[in-house]
Design a protein around this nucleic acid. Sequence first.
DNA 1: ATGGTCGGTCCCCGA
Length: 263
Amino acid sequence: MTLSVATWNVNSIKARLPNVLDWLKEAQPDVACLQEIKTVDEGFPRLEIEDLGYNVETVGQKTYNGVALLSKRPIEEISQRALPGDEDDEQARYIEAVISADQGPVRVASIYLPNGNPAPGPKYDYKLNWMKRLKAHAKALLALEEPVILAGDYNLIPRDSDVHDAAAWEGDALIRPDSRDAFAEILWLGYSEAFLQADGRAHQYTFWDYQAGAWQRNNGIRIDHLLLSPQAADRLKSVEIAKAVRGKEKASDHVPFIGVFEL
DNA sequence: ATGGTCGGTCCCCGA
């Protein structure tokens, strides 16, 4: 059996509910990690999504951020409701679950990594510090020697070929050398980027801005990623960017990115 | 070269 795991920044679950329900029905991912739900837990349209056969867990907040984890397989445990390392961090950006798959437990996180603009500045400092905390936690997870899938909007462009025009993004928090170094440090721990492993093509995007006709001109960036522990990477069969989702009515500015695993 | 769009909340912020 296969396990498909998707990540999708929906940019408000309330504004996006018809699109989200349509896509879940059509793509039938086993696990879907959502970001920017932009609601408190009580405002999440839980029943509509449960009706499609999903277990639903959320870490919401008012107006901004908020993450959710949907799973057709049983959720054994919510192992984290926040990224460890800063008790005072009140932003809802991390949820992690242990999910029952056919060949044993799989740990999946839904991550909304801070944007970090404008850079430099306090928001950029927060981003880099958050990435440092993510690295420390990712390292601890590796010691479990389990399949771990860190799925989310990383607000990070890994290579110059992951953007239509890298020069136009120079200085932006999504592409700055310090951001890229922090991302690379997580990979150097022993994580694999699913897209690079299973596809790797240049100029494949997961986000197109609402402004300036970015979608019509294919001015996109690839910032939604799955990071895999060795036990997950060994089982990765394929990846897919659900690009057609961006062309729908009332689309999010991000599209789903899916990994299919033999797990 | 510039201006352009969403969503949530409330008269502007974040992306």
